[in-house]
Write a protein that binds this DNA or RNA. Sequence first.
DNA 1: TTGGGTGCAAACTATTTGCATTCGA
DNA 2: TCGAATGCAAATAGTTTGCACCCAA
Lengths: 148, 148
Amino acid sequence: MGHAKHDYPLDRDQVSDLLEAHGILPTQQRVDIAYVLFQRAQHLAAEQVLASVNAYYGHVSKATVYNTLGLFVRKGLLREVLIEPGRTFYDSNTRDHHHVYDVETGELEDIPASSVAIQADSSIVDGAEVEGMDLVIRIRRHGEAAGG
Amino acid sequence: MGHAKHDYPLDRDQVSDLLEAHGILPTQQRVDIAYVLFQRAQHLAAEQVLASVNAYYGHVSKATVYNTLGLFVRKGLLREVLIEPGRTFYDSNTRDHHHVYDVETGELEDIPASSVAIQADSSIVDGAEVEGMDLVIRIRRHGEAAGG
DNA sequence: TTGGGTGCAAACTATTTGCATTCGA
DNA sequence: TCGAATGCAAATAGTTTGCACCCAA
């Protein structure tokens, strides 16, 4: 847990291998979708994935995008990031990391897990297996004093 | 930041005062809704709030519930918690705290901020004001060895 | 050949909005 | 009184589902 699974960007053959390595049959559409996702570490909503794939590669339907994204999440290839209500972002950064969210611009940035130390009382998770820790640091960048 | 704003449960007068203290006109419906919410620290979806209010107090419409929850969030009386895609939970715990999420049961539990130490490199938030940190620890409780 | 994958459209869920009515300072 | 709050229903946005067709092993 917590190590990089691959680098960016991946070419189509590498994407195909990546899917197979995760037990996913690398069909045309899935490779198209993964190719868009794994160009770099990024946060994309389903709608954006759909638009990118259809703009640059073969046609993919909305249902297939949703099905595929869900599949990738279940297989550990993507991470769901829930920041804004009602919109799921899919995070193609498979490294162990956290997020900084600018509440004013809506910008979402990755920070490596190594730059944050999280220490929880052992009693918190006593007897349970920790699947992961998701930290979101909410910031506002305007340096000005809050007026009123 | 990070101190308790009030205790639980609140009676209707206290709820009314709480709303006024946050610049919210305490109408009948808003007090009904707040009264349900602030019985204790809990995580409720809009639908559950609607059902509770209508079961125990006067009638409130769906739109008013959503409008009111949104208002309470904007005024800092509630916290939005996004764990499951497509469903917003409203957290009536106004104390500084984090969450433990059981990925198998969907159970969501509060843990006081004081039982977790989070130390981020200063460069991460350089020049920005930290609004808050949301930590979700995802666990699974089955003690058994992961088989396959 | 054949079961999984895909596309399409309809269904569904959660949430927001428009507007007429009602409430509260 | 009069602007703000509310209720209702329709609209919207995101996501899921059902089913016929197609493709890859």
